[in-house]
Design a protein around this nucleic acid. Structure first.
Lengths: 236, 236
DNA sequence: CATTATAATTGTACCGGTCTAATTTTTCAA
DNA sequence: TTGAAAAATTAGACCGGTACAATTATAATG
């Protein structure tokens, strides 16, 4: 782990351990430099990372302050590592409905940037939170990148396997959100009624080198799904 | 405008003007340094900014590449400057339903971090896209910060007025998303049916110094609302 | 010709510095 | 005591460098 990531993690841990609240002031840059025995630019990088994560905010001329979002149980739309981490206090389970090698749909082929005849792993599963249905997920993996999947992997964390098992490096993702009504089949899986609201989240995940390797469509149970984002003006 | 912002803007413009596509390679760092006559760290900062905006992605040992999301007409959940910019090709209008000084609801007071007796500006408006209802917005502004609003301002861009007119500096925001069913009143405003799906987006906007100045609840017409986010693994 | 080892390319981490701009604190005058 | 001016504090912009790691191109090898 890199220095600036390490330091960021330590500062975050410090904030949690000392239960610091929104607006509480952290030591000034110079103190942090001395404390961690690194240069200013390294500390700055750590703090920028924490700022993007929504952990702190920095005010020029004033100091570095703790930022805390007040609501718990929300799924971060930025984490891009699945939502396990956001909901670690809750019990998340999965039931695999389908897992097979297939030819992609036109939509999937387009999003994965492959031909209609190139094979993909198709995964369909229902995920539960505290025994209640959370979402229905359909996922397409470019088989030439994600070369192997089995039932066990798919029941656990696919992304973890992709990173640890296959040694692939996950880079960026595009996420699209829509609201619509559930159709018969989706309602069935989620234990809701036909025509009930749904949140459809479509994602395209890319490796660090820009190759898209996964396209997924996740239909959320509207009663269980709450999401959050922490935005920053100087990042837009 | 700062150097690194200026350069980022120029690079972005270059990409647009030359209609560069996903995966197209930009000049290497050293070339960019020479071209803009700045140090490496400045160019790096520009590129990091563009990376967070989802304009480029950088691959160590390889180069800097154009990143393009394929879908148009989506509202960015990260821009945090209203959605006018995302939908600039569409005609957005507003109808003000209500505008007055009030005592906040408990919810608003909590989110604005003020007492129940401190005054707020309450704004309720319906927004249209291409003559169709886009959303119903209820917004609370801390009156001790946003000291004045009138009908004209509220019909146009409130945030623009806050920045330009009042000279306030918008910092970060917390955004919460829920899906639910429309109630009678909301359905009425949006021209939909009671029980139809809705996307509820609650936001708390803060000044750069951390003070929350606005709490808003926006109910979107599910037929018109599509959102997107561009995420990055090394920012989480 | 395919494979492997080697070298060149290229972005990233990290250092340590100067200067600037926003904010806060202190000082001083009315 | 109040308010304005000056000084001190503090984060951020920007420079210019070295070392490193991932990737890609080239050369060597069988």
């Amino acid at each position: 782990m890199l220095k600036y990531q390490q330091i960021a993690a330590e500062i975050e841990k410090y904030i949690e351990d000392h239960a610091l609240q929104q607006g509480d002031k952290l030591p000034v840059l110079e103190t942090l430099m001395a404390q961690f025995e690194v240069s200013k630019s390294t500390i700055t990088k750590s703090l920028d990372l924490l700022e993007r994560k929504g952990v702190v905010f920095q005010v020029r001329g004033s100091g570095i302050f703790v930022r805390r979002h007040k609501r718990k149980g929300y799924i971060s739309l930025l984490s891009n590592q699945g939502f396990k981490k956001d909901l670690e206090d809750y019990k998340i389970t999965s039931k695999v409905v389908e897992l097979e090698v297939r030819i992609p749909t036109q939509e999937a082929a387009h999003n994965l940037n492959i031909g209609l005849d190139e094979e993909v792993y198709y995964v369909k599963r229902v995920r539960y939170i505290q025994e209640q249905t959370l979402c229905l997920e359909e996922s397409y993996y470019n088989k030439s990148i994600v070369t192997y999947l089995n039932n066990e992997i798919v029941t656990e964390s696919i992304f973890n396997y992709i990173k640890e098992g296959l040694g692939l490096k996950v880079g960026f993702s595009d996420v699209y959100l829509h609201v619509d009504k559930l159709n018969e089949e989706e309602a069935e899986y989620l234990g809701l009624k036909n025509g009930d609201p749904k949140l459809l989240v479509e994602s395209v995940f890319h490796l660090t080198n820009g190759q898209p390797f996964n396209f997924s469509k996740v239909t959320y149970n509207y009663q269980q799904s709450q999401f959050f984002i922490q935005a920053n003006s100087h990042f837009s």
